Amino acid sequence: MTTTHSSNQRSGVSGRARARPTRQAELRKLLARRSGASIAQIQKAFNWQPHTVRAAISAQRKSGSVIVRSNTDKGSVYRIVEESGSQ
């Protein structure tokens, strides 16, 4: 019986999927796109409410990312911009 148990443990370890990126990492990827991302696009991607999207963007800002908001005819679009030196 111990042989069966140990083989189940080994198969469980080898059958694990890779760790998924965090939602903050996925959000950062969306915001880093050249076109950026709107609140609606982020809502759809994560199935979040608008206030959750705004809080997650705020958390990105608090972690040191420079995020700009630009107004378009489709609404506000948020983008991470690269800093070109020290402040």
Rank of each mutant, 00 (worst) to 15 (best):
M1T: 15
M1I: 11
M1W: 14
T2F: 03
T2N: 12
T2L: 10
T2M: 11
T4S: 11
S6N: 06
S6Q: 08
S7N: 12
S7P: 05
S7K: 15
S7H: 09
N8P: 02
N8S: 10
Q9C: 10
Q9V: 14
Q9N: 14
R10F: 08
R10L: 13
S11H: 15
V13C: 04
G15R: 04
G15C: 05
R16W: 04
A17H: 10
A19P: 07
A19N: 06
A19E: 12
R20W: 04
R20A: 12
P21D: 07
T22Q: 08
R23P: 04
R23Q: 14
R23F: 06
R23L: 07
Q24Y: 06
Q24P: 06
Q24T: 12
A25D: 13
A25V: 07
L27G: 00
L27R: 00
R28E: 13
R28M: 05
R28G: 07
L30D: 09
L30E: 13
L30F: 14
L31F: 06
A32Y: 04
A32I: 03
R33I: 00
R34H: 12
R34G: 03
S35Y: 03
A37M: 00
A37D: 00
A37I: 00
S38G: 05
I39D: 05
A40D: 11
A40P: 01
A40K: 10
I42F: 01
Q43T: 12
F46Q: 05
F46M: 04
N47I: 07
N47V: 05
N47F: 03
N47G: 10
N47R: 07
N47A: 09
N47W: 01
W48L: 13
W48E: 03
W48M: 08
Q49N: 12
P50H: 12
P50D: 07
H51T: 08
T52Y: 11
T52H: 11
V53Y: 06
V53F: 06
V53K: 01
A55M: 12
A55S: 15
A55K: 15
A56H: 11
A56V: 01
I57P: 09
A59L: 10
Q60W: 02
R61L: 05
K62E: 11
S63Q: 09
S63W: 02
G64H: 02
G64S: 02
G64V: 03
S65K: 06
S65V: 02
V66E: 07
I67L: 01
I67W: 08
I67Y: 05
V68F: 05
R69N: 06
S70F: 02
S70M: 03
N71D: 11
N71C: 04
N71P: 05
T72N: 07
T72V: 09
D73V: 03
K74F: 00
G75Y: 04
S76F: 09
S76Y: 08
V77G: 03
V77I: 15
V77C: 04
V77A: 05
Y78A: 00
Y78L: 01
Y78W: 09
R79S: 01
R79E: 01
R79P: 00
I80Q: 02
I80M: 08
I80K: 03
I80P: 05
I80T: 08
V81D: 04
V81Y: 12
E82A: 15
E82M: 15
E83S: 13
E83G: 10
G85A: 15
G85S: 15
Q87F: 13
Q87I: 13
